[in-house]
Amino acid sequence: MSAKFVTENQLAKSLKDQFKNKIKEEYIESNRIKISTGPENLKNLAIAVKELGFEQVMSQGGTDYPENNVYRIEYHIICVSKKKLRSIIFSIMTEIPKDKPEIETLIDVLPSAEFHEQETFENFGITFIGHPRMEKLLLPEDWDDIPPLRKDYILPGRG
């Protein structure tokens, strides 16, 4: 076990001590940590991850699982200032039900997620409560169909 893999385990263990059984470790591998939690605890988990040293949101996205009737939202967070943590990608994820797709925004904790959350809103229809601009960013202004990245939207050339 290399020295770096010990760091991943240490980071996950410190979060486990803080949150006990509110979080679940999905996997811990070399340079990758993934932790999942319930939607009401996501903001506290993000604050804890930021205190560990991870500052920038590299990506924020959603996936549609129609058979479980949930959307999966995940944030991939990286560190650029501390050399020891630069190789790790820390991912946090949660699942929200499709009939009530809303979750609290994380831009007061991690400001780099602003445009990413706006894009997830227009792709899936998930509302981020507290975000200043829940409006279209990349799609045309007169888009009147369902949000395109859902699984029940079929591409016009293929349907």
Binding site: G61, T63, E114, F115
Partner: peptide
């Protein structure tokens, strides 16, 4: 693939 998510540097520099 089931889902492909791309995060590009230009989109992150927009802010």
């Amino acid at each position: 693939p089931y889902r492909v998510k791309i995060s590009v540097p230009s989109f992150r520099n927009l802010i």
